Simulated assay, not measured.
Amino acid sequence: MNFISGLPRSGSTLLSALLRQNPRFHASMSSGLASLLKANLQVMSAGSEASLVIDEEQRPKILRAICNAYYDGFQPDDVVFDTNRIWCSKMPLIHKLYPQAKVIACVRDVPWVMDSLERLYRKNPYENTLLFGGDEGRATVYSRVEALAHHNRLVGFAWSALKEAFYGEQAQNMLVVDYEFLAKAPEKVLRLVYQFIDEPWYEGHDFENVEFEADEFDRALGVKGLHSVRPKVEFKARRTVLPPDLFEKFKDMSFWKDVTGSGAFVITAKDEVSVQDVAQ
């Protein structure tokens, strides 16, 4: 089992849509597995009556059983990619449950993450999305961006979890993939993903016809188009819709561009897209 995590609006849905073109691969949008594991961990932890009758050896067996049941029906040689923003904050748990598992973390410069979410908000003027909590949070572009940046909200939590994983003990099991590189050179980046997870390349990938839909999930959040993927993989430059001061405020948050002190693998753009081993 492998995992996809990282920042929102940073290509995780696109990456999943590309990976699932391989008939051996299962990848989708955010799954319920992380929530199931969190809930069961809570039941088994101190303060719960069940914790008194569940010993340390039983806990990983129970959690693995949940994972196996969640993906029941897959063939032994199928490759599963479970997607959730929480995985970057659960690297020690992943390592204990699945020592060989890889985590692919999708990233994007934070101002453009905010810009992308603001654009989605403006495309849905007849919906009070749940992304900002309440009327106060969604009042203006400033309150919306500040709400998203809070440490326990969509962008702030994902960024904090990513940074934790990037500098953590299990960083060598993580590959950081930048959205812009993925959009500009999808085949080169995808080949490097295959290399990272040690799987043979699949020749059937089609970067002109990518399919993915999650309309029901997006409607439940009140953000139509949150998980939409255009058929053709390409990068389109644009002007930001954020006020200049707001864009500037989040400009220097791309810590993954400075690999000092991290054992993670990072896909970087040099003469061509390549994997940079920063563990040295």
Rank of each mutant, 00 (worst) to 15 (best):
V266Y: 01
Y126E: 11
S274F: 14
V53D: 11
D78M: 11
Q58N: 06
E164T: 13
S12N: 07
H227D: 04
K61H: 11
A17R: 02
A105H: 15
E146L: 08
P243H: 08
V141E: 09
N22V: 08
T268H: 00
H205Q: 12
Q100A: 12
A264S: 14
A139Y: 09
A46Q: 08
R153M: 12
I62W: 05
M1G: 01
G168N: 14
G222N: 00
R238T: 05
A69Y: 08
Q276F: 11
P60E: 04
I267L: 15
A17G: 10
E187K: 14
L242S: 04
G133I: 01
S262E: 03
Y98E: 10
D115A: 06
P244W: 07
Y121S: 00
V229M: 08
E49V: 13
F250D: 10
L154I: 04
V113M: 03
R108N: 13
D245A: 10
L15I: 01
Y179G: 06
R85W: 07
L33Y: 11
K61A: 12
M1D: 09
K224F: 11
G133E: 02
E136T: 12
W159N: 01
H95C: 00
E234N: 14
E213Y: 01
E211D: 00
R238L: 02
P231C: 15
S28P: 02
D82P: 03
A171Y: 00
M114G: 07
D252Y: 15
R239M: 04
L175G: 14
T83I: 02
H205W: 15
L93T: 01
P8G: 12
E199D: 13
D72F: 08
A39G: 07
S45F: 10
V273C: 09
L41A: 00
W201P: 07
Y121T: 01
R230N: 09
T240I: 00
V155G: 06
R119T: 04
A101T: 08
F157T: 04
G73I: 05
Y179H: 06
K270V: 07
A69D: 13
V107W: 05
D135R: 05
S31M: 11
M44C: 08
P125D: 06
M44F: 01
F181K: 09
V155T: 03
F181A: 11
K61Y: 04
N40P: 00
D55T: 04
V176I: 15
K249H: 07
A161L: 10
L15F: 05
H227L: 07
L226Q: 10
V229G: 02
A165G: 12
D115S: 10
L36E: 02
A237I: 03
R24E: 12
Q75A: 12
V229A: 05
A185C: 14
D115N: 08
D135N: 12
K123Q: 10
R119W: 02
P111F: 08
D178I: 05
A50Y: 03
A171I: 04
V278W: 10
L63M: 13
E56K: 14
V110I: 15
H150P: 04
A214L: 01
L36Q: 05
A214S: 13
L192S: 06
D135I: 03
V259G: 15
Q280L: 10
